[in-house]
Design a protein around this nucleic acid. Structure first.
Length: 269
DNA sequence: ATGCCATTAGAGTAATGA
């Protein structure tokens, strides 16, 4: 079972690129982020024509996540638990039954968190968008704990908006005051990892220079000024099933690309 | 230090992103 995450930065602008990649990469399940569309406007028919079931959790203009799957999507839930007042569409999960295993698949779009304000001592203040990011990560931690406690195959795939380590950025010193790389952000990410999750790419690719995002600005792609912020975190029962993983970086060089590229894992499930 | 570029909504720019 091949499972991918892909921040498409707007389904209206990205449908041709998405369809091309689906045909070529042939994933079984895809977690999409930033569909930037309400559910009713999502072009499900074109994707269903390629053999996918489609479940969306959209909102107007911003954010929005979706799951695509060649296998049935069962027990679909929308929204990250823990705050009924949160109206941003950033979380969707479902169960996919493989040949041998049922896998709980969570698609997420973690808040960016910028801009960050700093106090007189230079410490980031937990307020505004940055406060929302850290609060959201606390809720993610709680959901992650529950997935871990179930002791069954599960993964959380998406745009985490977290640069985990210096080697995950071409120019790490440019990001030290950014919500994606602040120590407090990375600590929150590591607290989740430390529950026992395996981050797919780093198990097989310890080398630096692997990125999943290149800004549209300042010729970032041409200069390979990238960051790795799209991740797949697996429970132990899921990690045991992983046979391969990768980043489809070539997608970034195509016509009218997203600023992110797909990241995928292959499971023997 | 700021904007760079792109997307959406919707008719001007404004908000957002990372």
């Amino acid at each position: 079972m091949k499972i991918a995450t892909y921040n498409i930065n707007g389904i209206k602008a990205r449908l041709p690129a998405l369809l091309d990649w689906l045909k070529e990469a042939d994933p079984d399940v895809v977690c999409l982020q930033e569909i930037k569309s309400v559910d009713a406007a999502f072009p499900a028919e074109e994707i269903e024509a390629l053999g996918y079931n489609v479940e969306t959790h959209g909102q107007k203009s911003f954010n929005g996540v979706a799951l695509l799957s060649k296998l049935p999507l069962e027990d679909v839930t929308r929204g990250l638990p823990g705050d009924d007042s949160d109206e941003q569409a950033r979380w969707i999960e479902a169960t996919v039954m493989g040949d041998t295993e049922a896998v709980r698949i969570c698609g997420l779009y973690l808040p960016n968190g910028n801009p960050v304000s700093f106090d007189a001592q230079g410490a980031p203040e937990r307020e505004g968008k940055y406060g929302y990011k850290l609060d959201w990560m606390d809720r993610l931690h709680a959901r992650a704990e529950a997935l871990m406690a179930a002791e069954t195959p599960a993964l959380m795939a998406g745009d985490y908006n977290i640069i985990p380590q210096r080697e995950d950025a071409a120019r790490p010193d440019a990001w030290t005051k950014d919500a994606l790389f602040l120590l407090e952000s990375r600590e929150a990410f590591r607290r989740i990892l430390n529950l026992g999750f395996t981050e797919a790419i780093r198990t097989r690719h310890p080398e630096p220079g692997l990125y999943s995002f290149w800004d549209y600005q300042a010729n970032s792609w041409e200069r390979n000024n990238g960051i790795r912020i799209d991740h797949v975190l697996m429970t132990p029962a899921c990690a045991d099933l992983m046979t391969d993983c990768g980043i489809d970086r070539d997608v970034r060089a195509r016509e009218k690309p997203s600023d992110h590229v797909p990241v995928w894992v292959e499971l023997a499930a």
